[in-house]
Amino acid sequence: MQKTKVTICVGTTCYLLGAADLQELETFLPEDLKECVEVIGSHCLGVCKDNQYGNAPFVKVDDELIANATVGAIIEKIYEHRKGE
C-alpha cells in the first residue's frame, strides 16, 4: 500500500498558532505507522485567510484537511485512512 502523506502547513499563521509543535510529529508516530507515513512541510495552504485564523494550524492527511490539528488528531486520521489494510 502507498504511504500516507501528511502535509503540515508551515505558513506563518499555522506556524505561530501551533504548527511549530507539529514539527516533531515523526518522533511521536507509533511504531506501526513509522514506515508508512510520509511527513512533509508545506507553504501556506491558503485556508487560514477565510476564517480569521480561528482554526489554524491546518494539516492535510492525504487530501483531507484537518483544522486545529494536534499530534493526536493527526495520528487518529492516519489510522482512519489506512483502515482495511
Partner: peptide, 16 residues
C-alpha cells in the same frame, strides 16, 4: 519572537 511572528501573520508575510 512571539510579537515578531504575530507581525508576520497580521501583515500577511509568508516566508516562501
Amino acid at each position: 519572537f512571539e510579537e515578531l511572528a504575530a507581525m508576520f501573520v497580521a501583515l500577511g508575510v509568508q516566508f516562501n
